[in-house]
Amino acid sequence: MEGFNLSDIISVEHLAYTYPGVEDTPGVPVFEDMNLKIQEGSFVAVLGTNGCGKSTLAKHFNSILLPTGGKVYVCGIDTANEDRIMTVRHNVGMVFQNPDNQIVANVVEEDVAFGPENLGVSSPEIRRRVDTALKQVGMYEYREHAPHLLSGGQKQRVAIAGIIAMEPKCIVLDEPTAMLDPRGRREVIDTVSRLNREKGITVVLITHHMDEAARADRVVVLDKGKVAADGTPREVFSQVELLHSIGLASPETVELCWELNRQGFDLSLDALEPEECAQALYNAVKA
């Protein structure tokens, strides 16, 4: 473990991964030499185009996929160590895109209990965790409802509750808002950012939405199996040309300033909030 640091909850070192080929066809390489460290307690957004390897990377964080080369460590544990798989999965919970396909039970609270039940937690403790988790995502009043009657945002919050009831150190969300309407998206992103702030849970958010990524502490941009940009949202989104070349875009506030700069203005490219951007434009116009 080179450069292992206790504060890194996930550490990806020289990861190589090739999807196994079907029959005689050669496999599809996704990563050749991927390196990434995620600090405990941080809120990291991972951006990239469809097929850039975001989901494949996420599946390495809890031993669903195992590296074909290099190592992935979770809390210092090698994810390829079969004896420790349950510890890894216990520490890193996953929420997927389609809420319908990750809810197991047909009563909300029973579903949230599924994870802790698998961990062999005692009954009264499961009850406590389920209630706490449901309250944290604001779904406690719905604990006896049938999940298929909930809205997309509500289902996704139930899925998140199901993960936090396992009391993981880290939650990885793989495009959790792709199927939701604006309200559902707000609900989900507010929930995860609150869990990060108040409970100190590490959040890795994979997304297509720049405005969601802008709410993270750190943005990692993946392109063709490599880290193309890595930094605070302001640092990453100000690299507008780079993002465009990958097929991504910055939030509209930055895109607007960038476009104005091309036409002779001299604005800084780090305004992510509408208020900030308005102030910068105001100053530019009044100058």
Partner: peptide, 8 residues
């Protein structure tokens, strides 16, 4: 366009 990246 649900679920697609900006290029898609």
């Amino acid at each position: 366009t649900a679920g697609l990246d900006p290029v898609g």
